[in-house]
Design a protein around this nucleic acid. Structure first.
Ligand SMILES: [Mn+2]
Ligand SMILES: [Mn+2]
Ligand SMILES: [Zn+2]
Ligand SMILES: [Zn+2]
Lengths: 148, 148
DNA sequence: AATACAATGATATTCACTTTCAAGCCATCA
DNA sequence: TGATGGCTTGAAAGTGAATATCATTGTATT
């Protein structure tokens, strides 16, 4: 068991206590599966993964658990406009997304200089910034080669 | 009639000719309404607006027209993860979005300095940038007042 | 005008959530 | 330990924006 993962679990358990919510087997299984992936995922992927291991996990429960993880600050919702809501483990640095308009591949990269600048502009408009998402769309390297 | 709008209309007409598509009254009305707004819009807004003026415009036609505008390079699709697909006039300035996590209000503002910088980073990764979206989430001024 | 297609729009369908509700589970307290 | 109360679960139903269907209508061309 990873040290980081253990801390996240404790963070979640604390969150549940403070809110008067309950630690259930399902929430624990879903959190393990979520932390076990090293990439963003979505409801149905986790749901099918867990159904393969445990026969009694419902779609609605996975849905509610992921939203709960987000509320607890453990997960971050990512919407790339393809009709699916993705979730990734929060914490760590902000990421920018490169979405290929041709093959749909999503590449991530880090760049922190933008965030401060942009957040300051928002504050001038009386807006308190909680998160920033930068999404670039275009053609990835592979697709450029294929097209010549 | 704005000079820029006239050029856009000619661009669209040329696009239709090249593709063997037809210039219809509906497409003309929808394009006028779309260009007449100085902000992003979505299907139902345009649909209701046009229904107020002309009794025979269908939801499906507005939907298809906006996708056609996007294919023609006239419109740009924007998805903010709130379940609606927005469209804004392409070719204008890029816009950044402030989405309130409390009331869902979307505020737009312009800020062009970021784009070049970010696009250059992407090019270094072998990625040809076609569009850039910056989305800030947080609490808007109104909601801050309400909460004290 | 006749013809060949494309476009329209009321309607139905899809699909990814999101909610409902009866049955079950968890934390707490005597 | 056992009762109690409220939270949780999950099958099923509901929601709503997007998309497809198809008979009818419109457009461009000859
Ligand atoms: Mn609708
Ligand atoms: Mn949807
Ligand atoms: Zn690609
Ligand atoms: Zn607000």
């Amino acid at each position: 068991m990873n040290q980081t993962k253990q801390k996240v679990k404790e963070q979640f358990h604390l969150f549940l206590s403070k809110k008067g919510l309950k630690a259930t087997l399902q929430r624990s299984l879903i959190l393990d599966a979520f932390l076990g992936l090293d990439r963003s995922t979505h409801i149905d992927e986790l749901y099918l993964l867990l159904r393969g291991r445990h026969s009694n996990i419902g779609h609605a429960t996975v849905y509610r658990a992921l939203r709960l993880f987000a509320a607890a600050g453990i997960a971050r919702e990512v919407n790339l406009g393809d009709g699916l809501t993705r979730y990734e483990v929060a914490g760590g640095k902000r990421r920018d997304y490169l979405v290929c308009n041709d093959c749909g591949t999503v590449t991530e990269f880090e760049n922190s200089t933008i965030a401060r600048h942009q957040a300051e502009l928002a504050r001038n408009l009386g807006f308190t910034v909680q998160s920033l998402k930068i999404e670039l769309r275009g053609i990835c390297g592979n697709c450029q080669e294929r097209q010549g």
